[in-house]
Amino acid sequence: RLFDTLASVYIKEEIDARRVFNMDETSFESSKKSHRVIAFRGSGNVWSQEVHPSFHLTIVACGSADGLVVPPVFILPGKTVRLNVMANCGVSGAAVAMTDSGFMNTTLFIRWLAFFASSVPATTPRPLVLIMDGCSSHYSSEVITAACELSILLVCLPANSTHLFQPLDVAVFGAFKSKLRPLIHSFISEDGNYTIDKENAIRLAGIAWENCNFPFNVKAGFKSCGLFPLAKEKMEESLGHYQRNGTPKDLGIAAWLHVKTVVQQELLVLSPPREKSKTRTTTTVGDRLLTHQLLLQIAAEQEDERTRKRQVKADARKRINKRQKRVEEATV
């Protein structure tokens, strides 16, 4: 269905690589309440701590199949921000936004669509095709209205498939994070800090952004995912690789999987439930210290008690039977 949708749009609007974009969000680093300690296995003296920010920073990325990179937007939590928060960000045209949680929401996404449209050169023909995931903040009547006014065609990827068909996930974010991690560790060693403030987080993210070869990687991502040039074979290859969990095509199915299939198709008859024994096999410990001999003694006492109770019940049944017999004889 994704292939058919894109094929229809590409043909109808005569779309070229300059007009196809992918948008997604990633995080700077997860905010953690617990602390991790990094050490060599077997070390008896551990004190190094893993750095983490005290807030959530979302980075909005977008790039085209032609290698055009839209400046990033950094989303911070809260309502106010320092005036110099972007002073050390080396990415030209980058912007910062605020939400209560630090994540994208519908209102901000509508504002981002206008930012995106203004970032694409006016010489690029419209409409633009924007491929994205189906996050709730990306899809609403207000979003569709804003996109129509800006001449943007929105295409949502199938659920749970972004790791297969989203160019940013496939080819860009991995390279970005691989550049960002060493910068974070260098920040630790230079300043001796174990947390990062907002200004430095944006500064480090900007450096990683500039050095992750975004234009080349996003072009390769579009091609690898089969989104542009549109290639159904590559889409099916990605899906098949996922369904096989990365195993080779010629790998045989394990014996237990065959057995599992048979079990699923056959009717299984369960054995009747086992009757529970009323014999007590436990004892109350209380304040006692129970040795093996004492446990044997308790077990023997319990058995004697059960025998006595059975005898009492048997005697009671005999008396009832005799009483009923006398009543019947008197009636006759």
Rank of each mutant, 00 (worst) to 15 (best):
F109L: 04
L257A: 08
T145V: 11
A146H: 02
A171H: 11
T195A: 05
D287C: 13
S141D: 14
D16F: 06
L267M: 09
F40R: 09
A114C: 07
P229G: 13
P273Y: 12
L227W: 11
F28Y: 14
S161E: 09
L68W: 10
T99Q: 07
E329Y: 06
Y139P: 00
G44I: 02
T5R: 14
A255L: 05
V172H: 04
I196A: 11
L257C: 03
V85I: 11
L296K: 15
Y139I: 04
F187G: 06
R41P: 06
D16I: 03
T195Q: 06
A330E: 13
K12T: 09
P127I: 03
S178R: 10
S151K: 15
A146D: 02
D197C: 10
I298N: 02
A231W: 06
L227Y: 03
F28D: 03
R244I: 10
E13R: 01
A94V: 12
I59H: 07
S161K: 07
S54H: 12
H185E: 13
R326H: 09
P53T: 03
F173C: 04
P229R: 14
T58E: 12
W47H: 12
P121D: 14
L113Q: 08
G44Q: 09
C156E: 09
T307V: 11
D191A: 10
I144P: 02
R310K: 13
D100S: 13
A65M: 03
V20K: 01
L6W: 04
K198P: 00
A61T: 15
P127M: 02
T99R: 11
V20R: 01
V263Q: 13
R308N: 00
K309Y: 07
Y242A: 15
F28E: 02
L113E: 03
W112S: 02
G174I: 07
H163W: 09
P272K: 01
A300P: 00
K223V: 04
C135H: 15
S271Q: 12
S119R: 06
C135Y: 08
H52C: 14
F228N: 02
G240I: 03
E13N: 15
D100N: 13
Q49H: 08
S30M: 13
F173W: 07
N245W: 00
E199F: 00
I188T: 06
K179G: 04
Q166D: 08
